[in-house]
C-alpha cells in the first residue's frame, strides 16, 4: 500500500486551520481587552509576524521537497492458499 505525501499536507492544512482559529481568539482578546497601552498591540504584531515567518520557512522547505512524487510504501502481508503444495496420497 502506498501513502502519497500530499496526505501529510492535508493533515498539516487542518492543523494550520486549527492554529488560525486559536490565533484569532487570542488576537480578538488582545484587541478588545488590551486597551491601556501600545504594548499589547506591539506583542500582537510580533505574534503575527513570527507566525507568518514559521509559515514562510515551512513553505521554503516544502517547496524544495518532491512532495508530488514522494510516497511511503507499506508492505501488508497477504495470505493465499498455495494449492501446488498440497500433497495427495
Amino acid at each position: 500500500m502506498e501513502i502519497p505525501a500530499f496526505i501529510i499536507l492535508i493533515v498539516y492544512g487542518v492543523i494550520v486551520f486549527l492554529f488560525c482559529i486559536l490565533a484569532f481568539f487570542n488576537i480578538y482578546h488582545a484587541i478588545r481587552f488590551g486597551i491601556f497601552d501600545t504594548a499589547v498591540k506591539f506583542v500582537t504584531l510580533i505574534f503575527i509576524l513570527v507566525s507568518l515567518g514559521i509559515f514562510f520557512i515551512t513553505g521554503l522547505f516544502l517547496a524544495e521537497s518532491h512532495w508530488r512524487d514522494a510516497k511511503f510504501f507499506i508492505d501488508i502481508p497477504t495470505f493465499s492458499a498455495d494449492t501446488s503444495k498440497n500433497v495427495r496420497n
Partner: peptide, 30 residues
Amino acid sequence: DFFTILIVCGVSTYYLFIWVFFFRDFLDFY
C-alpha cells in the same frame, strides 16, 4: 522526501502551537 516532509510539517506544527500558547500565556498575564 516523504520523511523530510513529515519532519518539516511536524516541526512546523510544534513551533506554531508553542508560539500560540505562549501568546495566550502573555495575554493571561498582561
